[in-house]
Amino acid sequence: MSTIAKALGLLDLFCDAQPRLGLSDVQRLVGRDKATVHRHLVALEQAGFLEQDAGTRAYRLGPALTRLAGMRARTVPEVEMVRSVIGGLSREAGELVHISRLQGFDLVHVHHAEEHDHPVRVSFDAFGLPPLFATASGKAYLAFSPGGLLDLALADPRTSLPGTSVPDRREIETELKQIARLGYARNRDTLRLGVSSVAIPVFDGASRAFATCSIAYPTGRGGKGTEARLARLLMQRGQDITEAMGGVVPPQILDLWTPSRERAAS
């Protein structure tokens, strides 16, 4: 690893749990000699990637990162951010993969990929996305968002299918709790007979759910085994998807998405 890469790698040590780190803290975390770590920290501070508190001498993330993050958000469309990771996931899953962003309670299409050779495919309409309670994506969003959003969603008629009754609150709460335990949402023949899907939330820079990623597939392609395989793929790529959109996955969600044997090996 180059000297520049080692220095920039120190930025990954900062997180919500440890927003400020002293020289000794950084040295302990990376296991390098004190002089080298100090040299890297000083270089990052001079470049604006870190700033040092004059009183405590602890370092925190600097203003250059805010400027660069803002520039990326202004100059790189969301589609370009996620195109490669979503395309790769579609090839690996062999199914339709779709990213949608929540605006109010409306699902808004961001990008989708269907890079497989199956003759039987799920039809997709980017301009006619269904309401929240009819989709795995909508349920994934609600399950990993603040509880007050459920009250607002239940009160908004756009969140249910036209002509259907208001969803039962207790049934919805039970399902959302199950989704929060599993790490993903699922639908089977609910919106359209013969179509199933699994979905996960996508998080923003403040670790808040703001979008979703789903895999849709013909129900006839398989039962619970297919669902489990696709959900596992989706969760394995969850961090890549969130980071491609400039976000951060909360640690507790990352634990849900990471098999225990992988955590033990890391």
Rank of each mutant, 00 (worst) to 15 (best):
G88P: 12
V120I: 13
F144A: 00
G194M: 15
L89E: 08
K139I: 02
L176Q: 08
K177A: 15
S197R: 05
G183T: 04
R170L: 09
S145N: 01
L132E: 03
L161A: 05
S160G: 02
A93R: 06
L129H: 01
F124K: 14
L182R: 09
E80P: 02
V82S: 05
H112V: 08
R192H: 07
L161M: 10
G128L: 00
D117E: 07
L191V: 04
V195G: 03
V97Q: 07
T164R: 14
A153E: 04
G87P: 03
E92C: 10
P131G: 02
R181M: 06
R158Q: 05
P131I: 00
G87H: 04
Q178F: 03
R83P: 05
H112W: 12
I172F: 01
P119F: 14
D156A: 07
Y141T: 00
P146F: 08
A73E: 14
E78F: 05
E78K: 04
M71H: 10
V120S: 14
R158D: 09
I99M: 06
V198E: 08
E114M: 14
I179R: 01
L102P: 00
T174N: 14
I99D: 04
F133R: 01
G70M: 10
D151F: 04
A185H: 14
A199D: 09
P131C: 02
A136M: 03
D156R: 03
